[in-house]
Amino acid sequence: MTAKRETRAAATARFAIGECSLGAILVAASTRGVCAILIGDDPERLACDLQDRFPRAMLSGGDPDFERSVATVVGFVEAPGLGLDLPLDIRGTAFQQRVWQALQEIPAGQTASYAEIARRIGAPKAVRAVARACAANPLAVAIPCHRAVRNDGQLSGYRWGIERKRALLDREAGR
């Protein structure tokens, strides 16, 4: 997903940064819905990442009303069984959209291999492209790319770190 594609419809975006057990978390929304959920160790780096994703957008932070959305996302991170009931503004290529839809169909606490996801979307030879679509996911936890694993079931590649991936899967499995 390129920043150019994302900025076409993102003239303005509100954002707020909070803390959760996985570190700092940034939630941003366009007028259509949540367009970014980013997790990391450095709140300033998350804000820079958001700016890089939406270089032409007018970003506004510090909105007390919007901070409720961050609280909702933090609640979901801490207790995935609560579900996440927020409108999403999911932007990506048609292929990415198919991958992300397949990820959302994997039940919480379960995983699927990149190869299995490729087969599910009708592109069995596109395993690496599936992995790239997971890496391009701007909506941590809302699009559960943490549920994608290697063929042998082992954890690999997670944009926000393997330990965060493991923690999310453990929470979903009730561990």
Rank of each mutant, 00 (worst) to 15 (best):
A13T: 05
G174W: 08
R56E: 14
L139R: 03
G153M: 04
R150D: 10
A126L: 04
C145A: 15
A47D: 05
A36M: 14
R5I: 12
T93F: 07
L88F: 13
R164C: 04
G75N: 11
R91G: 01
R68L: 12
A118P: 03
L50W: 03
D65M: 11
S30G: 06
A115K: 14
I25G: 01
Q101F: 10
D41F: 01
Q104R: 15
S60V: 15
A102I: 06
D49M: 12
R128M: 11
F95K: 10
D89G: 03
L139I: 08
V127G: 02
C35Q: 07
Y114G: 04
A28V: 05
F95A: 05
G157I: 05
R132P: 00
D65L: 13
R8T: 10
L59M: 07
G83L: 11
Q154L: 09
A29L: 08
T2V: 03
Q154K: 12
L26I: 01
F76C: 06
T93D: 12
G83A: 13
A148R: 03
T111L: 02
A29F: 06
M1L: 11
A140F: 07
S21R: 10
V127N: 04
Q104F: 00
R5G: 13
L82E: 13
E116G: 11
T12H: 15
C48P: 00
S60I: 14
N137W: 05
R175N: 13
A57W: 04
A135G: 12
A135F: 15
T31N: 10
Y114I: 02
A136F: 12
S30E: 02
R120E: 10
G61C: 06
D63K: 06
E172S: 05
D42A: 07
L38D: 10
F15R: 07
G161V: 01
F95P: 06
E172L: 08
R171K: 15
D49A: 14
S69M: 09
R147T: 01
R45I: 06
Q96I: 02
F54I: 08
G122I: 12
D63W: 05
A115V: 09
Y114P: 01
A3Y: 06
A71M: 11
A133H: 08
K165V: 00
A131H: 03
D63L: 07
I17L: 08
G174F: 06
A16K: 00
I143T: 13
W100D: 06
D65H: 12
W160L: 02
V70L: 10
V74E: 01
E172D: 08
L103S: 04
L139M: 09
A167Y: 00
K165G: 03
Q96F: 03
S156E: 12
D85S: 11
L86M: 07
F76K: 02
L46Q: 09
T93E: 11
R56V: 05
A71E: 15
A79R: 13
D52H: 12
D42N: 15
D41I: 00
R159P: 02
T12L: 12
P64T: 09
M1Q: 11
L88K: 07
A11S: 12
V34D: 03
P80G: 09
A16P: 00
F66V: 08
R5W: 04
M1C: 10
T31P: 00
V73R: 02
A24L: 03
A131N: 00
R128L: 11
E44Q: 14
E116M: 07
V77C: 06
D65E: 14
H146C: 01
Q51M: 09
Q104D: 00
G83Q: 13
L103I: 05
R45L: 13
R120G: 02
R68K: 14
A131P: 03
W100Y: 09
